[in-house]
């Protein structure tokens, strides 16, 4: 089972304190949100809207709580401009207001013994930063640095915002790019396979494109290592009311459908069909 969701989420309008373009099309928005920072666990998300946007875009956008800075009472959302909703959110500069419902869902559970590998593909690296910076329960920043290794994949070097952010935060990371323009030429799951073969791995955490997650789940299972996957699904309410964000559940976990907003977004790899 993944970490319990917060009993109920908070709903608040937060101010953007800083906007940074990490790479073209991907921004980091720091929000002044002390209460949210206190409540949030890595892997949880918020339903985000630009106040006053009316009926269009109609739905909130689920955005993972990427950087959680409890000391300074702020939360950093890492947003890739994928459509009109995320474009409108990413366009918010310092001083702008964002309407957030969160934290929502179940985040990443704390690591087991041994080293942990944090596998992120593209924008999927975002929710892993909360884990990597040691926000997870019972793990200090120092332990996080010595016991966690980020494996970051992107299509090409120009999209490797996660490498720059990791190095800025002093987090160890290995890199793979599809076109070989940085790090290992090929898939991030190829570095994962090599790392798993080295042994001493306790837990694998992953977020990214579905084919990547599918391979991560298989590799973790074959290595006998616990794997946690953060899934993405089209979503409407975000709180478990509409049953829109269904994901097929494995027979061993009871079959039928899980709901990404309430039962996830983080699932144990064996719990879902992927």
């Amino acid at each position: 089972m993944c970490s319990e969701p917060t009993a109920m989420p908070a709903w608040q309008v937060c101010r953007v304190s800083e906007r940074r373009e990490l790479v073209p099309g991907t921004v980091l928005l720091w929000l002044e949100a002390p209460a949210l920072a206190d409540l949030a666990h890595p892997g949880q998300f918020a339903q985000v809207a630009v106040p006053g946007s009316g009926a269009d875009p109609f739905l909130r956008r689920p955005i993972s709580l990427g950087l959680i800075d409890r000391e300074r009472g702020r939360v950093g959302l890492i947003i890739r401009e994928a459509g009109r909703g995320t474009r409108a959110i990413a366009a918010c500069g310092a001083g702008a207001a964002l309407d957030l419902i969160g934290p929502l869902g179940r985040g990443f559970p704390s690591p087991a013994g041994g080293r942990s590998l944090l596998v992120g593909g593209g924008i999927g690296a975002a929710p892993l930063f909360g884990l990597a910076t040691g926000i997870a329960k019972g793990l200090g920043p120092h332990q996080a640095q010595t016991r966690m290794l980020m494996l970051l994949g992107a299509r090409h070097a120009g999209e490797l915002w996660a490498r720059d952010l990791a190095s800025e935060l002093g987090l160890p990371a290995l890199i793979a790019t599809d076109d070989g323009s940085a790090g290992h030429p090929g898939l991030v799951t190829e570095i994962l396979a090599a790392e798993l073969a080295s042994g001493h791995i306790g837990t694998v955490y992953a977020c990214g494109p579905t084919p990547m997650l599918s391979t991560v789940g298989r590799l973790a299972r074959e290595a006998g290592v616990r794997g946690y996957l953060s899934l993405e699904q089209r979503m409407a309410c975000g709180v478990g009311a509409c049953l829109g964000c269904a994901w097929p559940r494995s027979e061993s976990a009871g079959g039928g459908y899980a709901h990404v907003c309430r039962d996830g977004p983080v699932f144990e790899a064996t719990e879902v069909i992927i």
Binding site: A55, F58, L59, R234, A236, L243, G244, A246, P248
Partner: peptide, 23 residues
């Protein structure tokens, strides 16, 4: 009822489509 296969919802101009399937 288990409901329909995903994706079950998607946003459209000033609205959304759903096919939950009576889950």
């Amino acid at each position: 009822r288990a409901g329909n296969r995903p994706p079950r919802v998607t946003e459209t101009p000033a609205g959304m489509l759903n096919s939950i399937g009576l889950e």
